[in-house]
């Protein structure tokens, strides 16, 4: 395997990066951690003429608290998220999701931004970020725009990213949720892609759920929020039967395909089980 020839750019500012991308258009690909892009180039799925590396843009690595939100720079690595004391204190479910991703070597290189823009349905961070109502900021030579992360994906490896845009930050709003979690089913304990996964956030009020978000990975061509399952839970007394029923709704809404990691039928079953278990965990253990 080898990386085909390309021209390399390493701009020093976001503005410079945007200018280069504006000029090169679809001849350029943005390089962040490289764990997806370089692999795709090696196996012949991607052959850009130019690679625009973001490695000098240190301001995009920052994870910080601002009034009303937590901001995660798009270049923050998975291990940066895993070890962030701020995220561990505010939303432990996110560092734990980052920890399930891959080997240490990949977690040191791979970035949250890359995990999002890659757009694959098995990505581990988008489900929990959507469960936490995150939004993203896209920057280009034309300016900036923000959108809910939930609206970003529209097909397998298809996103609303325009040519010339860079994903610069992810923002998690302050919220009333009382718990959240990400449960992933892999076929070994480390370095396994999700056969299916479920992220949930809950707002428990007494013995009922006031609000809930359920987001699935590896269950459809895109990361998938399952509204029917969410609605089935609101205002009803929490018990095992209720959670199992929500799991059934989630399974029904899922559209997995047969793959080398599991048949569609098996993955549907897993969606149900994981949704049920994730809800129980978020209700019982908070952000975990």
């Amino acid at each position: 395997m080898y990386v085909p020839d390309f021209e390399y750019h390493a701009p020093n500012t976001v503005a410079e990066a945007c200018a280069i991308l504006a000029e090169l258009g679809d001849r350029a690909t943005v390089l962040a951690g490289g764990t997806d892009v370089l692999h795709k180039m090696k196996v012949g799925k991607l052959a850009p003429e130019h690679l625009v590396s973001l490695k000098n843009l240190d301001e995009l690595r920052e994870i910080r608290e601002e009034p009303g939100r937590v901001v995660i720079g798009a270049l923050a690595s998975h291990n940066q998220i895993y070890t962030s004391q701020l995220l561990q204190r505010r939303y432990l479910s996110l560092p734990m999701a980052a920890h399930t991703m891959a080997s240490n070597q990949i977690c040191n290189l791979g970035t949250v931004g890359g995990n999002i823009v890659n757009g694959v349905p098995s990505a581990d961070l988008p489900p929990i970020l959507i469960a936490l109502d995150a939004s993203i900021r896209l920057t280009s030579a034309k300016g900036e725009r923000t959108m809910p992360l939930e609206d970003f994906f529209w097909g397998s490896a298809q996103t609303r990213m325009e040519p010339g845009e860079i994903l610069t930050e992810i923002s998690i709003p302050d919220q009333q949720t009382t718990g959240s979690t990400y449960l992933k089913f892999g076929l070994r304990r480390s370095g396994a892609l999700a056969v299916a996964a479920a992220a949930v956030s809950v707002q428990v009020s007494g013995d009922t759920l006031h609000a809930v978000r359920i987001v699935l990975a590896s269950a459809a061509p895109t990361v998938l929020r399952v509204a029917d399952a969410e609605r089935s839970l609101i205002g009803r007394r929490i018990d095992d039967e209720l959670l199992a029923e929500a799991g059934q709704f989630a399974a029904q809404a899922s559209r997995p395909r047969d793959s080398i990691r599991g048949s569609a039928e098996y993955r549907k079953n897993l969606v149900g089980v994981l949704t049920k278990r994730a809800l129980k965990k978020a209700i019982d253990e908070g952000h975990a």
């Binding site: 076929l187 070994r188 304990r189 480390s190 370095g191 396994a192 892609l193 080398i260 990691r261």
Partner: peptide, 11 residues
Amino acid sequence: LANYRLLTAVD
């Protein structure tokens, strides 16, 4: 080695 699943130390 991502999908040919050799076990890892933690397994």
